[in-house]
Design a protein around this nucleic acid. Structure first.
Lengths: 222, 222
DNA sequence: TCGTCCAGAATTGCATGCATGAAAGTTGGG
DNA sequence: CCCAACTTTCATGCATGCAATTCTGGACGA
């Protein structure tokens, strides 16, 4: 069956995928004509796709100066991480309160499966399963709006956390932290789920900082 | 000095303002040609503006079938309110933890000023000040990303909460709830600020529900 | 009365062309 | 050698035109 979406929509998806895949890195210029030729369309749908992506924050549109993959400052990156952590923690709390028994079992099963990937120290497979894990938390919160916001923020962070799981032993650490979240959700411990998720994403931030070769930014520190 | 923004950007702002002002209500079709004539431009920048607004959720773009002001179902409306409440509560918690003494004083002053508006039962002036109040909370959280998300959700809700303050006595009730938030922030009571804000926005939702009653817009209703 | 089907009209999707503003390159002066 | 102003080049912003799809309304048959 044919795709009913417009070219602009498909382009937006394709360009976003390419950015997340690292084909362009933050700061790279997105030339309208080059994109048009690459995807075999005219500049018009390319421009519409770029506007759409600009509204999500994944790219930046500077009037008369073209589009570029969003280049966030260290301060903005910290805010992005904090915002993501808070929203994911909120999802975890809502999940602890309202997740169905069946969904809880599924989450536990997914977590158990990830244990094997962590033990095998398989970063690629673990990263993929990690996305599913966080997606299960979003779903457990039973709030599509929060999930959409969280996914949007996660996408904006992806260009900066690509290599995160490649550090040896990181999947295992991530898995232990997930365990705290899963335990709290299983017990219906809303505050515990919130705290565990906040702690987890906070650790991810510090890992990214370490990879970037910076000292971990501290909120309000001198 | 001349506006350096492109026509598409200005159009996006103007159309959003018109929607929030109630010039079009949820479900109304947005005709490209009509918009182009109204704002004295061609369809090209109009289309780009519509894509931008579509990405924010304020309008819906149905391929080959035009754009319309987003018509949210009662279930989605509930999710929007919950998400907004959770994010604003998070901002309140962060504000309680990290707001500067000067900002705390400013927030208290703003709250006191709103007391007069509430006593006078002036819904229009109170609604305006209310926006400033919540903006002060966002600022207190010191996280532009969270603030941006909260504002975006608030904007999507605005077409549904326009008449909210017109119920007699509502400004006074809102002001009392704000007082609980302000008190908690003043004491640095993070959990209290979170709970007070959650409660406050939850009450707003119930007020909107009451106003909407059975006349709430329904998609595809029989 | 109701549903179906088929022009005609209207609207969206996209390509193309041109004008404007920004960046790069060049030249002349200090 | 450096810098500033000018020129050139090129990408973006926008208008216009055409093709494809959807919508409308009326005729026709059950």
């Amino acid at each position: 069956m044919t795709d009913t979406r417009t070219r602009a929509e498909r382009l937006a998806g394709a360009i976003a995928d390419a950015i997340v895949a690292g084909e362009w890195v933050p700061g790279d210029r997105l030339d309208e004509q080059a994109l048009a030729e690459r995807y075999g369309v005219s500049r018009t749908p390319v421009r519409e796709a770029l506007r759409q992506l600009g509204a999500t924050g994944l790219i930046e549109l500077r009037p008369r100066r073209g589009a570029a993959v969003a280049l966030v400052t260290p301060e903005e990156l910290d805010e992005l991480f904090v915002a993501t952590a808070e929203i994911e923690a909120t999802c975890a709390r809502l999940a602890a309160l309202g997740m169905s028994p069946v969904d809880r079992r599924r989450l536990e099963a997914l977590h158990d499966d990830m244990g094997a990937l962590a033990a095998a120290d398989d970063p690629v497979a673990y990263a993929e399963a990690n996305t599913a894990f966080h997606g299960a938390i979003y779903a457990g919160a039973r709030n599509a709006v929060l999930a959409e916001v969280a996914l949007g923020l996660r996408r904006r962070l992806l260009p900066y956390r690509k290599a995160q799981f490649r550090a040896p032993g990181r999947p295992a650490l991530s898995h232990r932290e997930h365990g705290a979240v899963v335990d709290a959700i299983r017990c219906g411990d809303a505050a515990g789920a919130h705290a565990a998720m906040l702690h987890h994403v906070g650790l991810v931030e510090r890992a990214v900082d370490a990879l970037a070769g910076r000292a971990a930014p501290r909120r309000g520190a001198a």
